[in-house]
Write a protein that binds this DNA or RNA. Sequence first.
DNA 1: TATTCTTTTGGCG
DNA 2: CGCCAAAAGAATA
Length: 150
Amino acid sequence: MIITTPIGKLGLKLSSNILSSIRFLPKTALLSTNQDQAIQRIITELHAYFKNPQHQFKLEFQMEGTAFQKRVWKALQNIPSGKVLTYKELAQKLKTSPRAIGNACRRNPLPIIVPCHRVVSQQGLGGYNGKTGGEMLNIKQWLLKHEGSI
DNA sequence: TATTCTTTTGGCG
DNA sequence: CGCCAAAAGAATA
């Protein structure tokens, strides 16, 4: 399932009507439509967020990962919109090291819903979607601006 | 002080 | 083992 958003095209993957992964797609990707109720609900949630950064997602999704990753992702979801943490701060909160946080964030299957974009480096932006520069960082910056953090 | 290095780092495949 | 979306410290100017 592919939808368009203000930050480009998103590919949504579902497993048994539950959101399991989101990925950013190149603008060359083709749109696809789907009438399925479960998907429509997810799309509505996403659009609501792009309209209102304060929107809280009320949807189910799969959190497949190690115990540590789940711990990090859960902590991420507790960051309110408009607030930003550094890897260091998160590390202190979870009693681990900044490097490990980056590791877990990088493997986040659900960008936007799990707000890994609200974690930044101590000086600079950090990375996004596996990259430390390039187009992905523009998206990260856009999201932070959208939420008023910049 | 500001930049560029080198080392330390936690958890993962 | 070696790979990373980081940070702190040392070295240099």
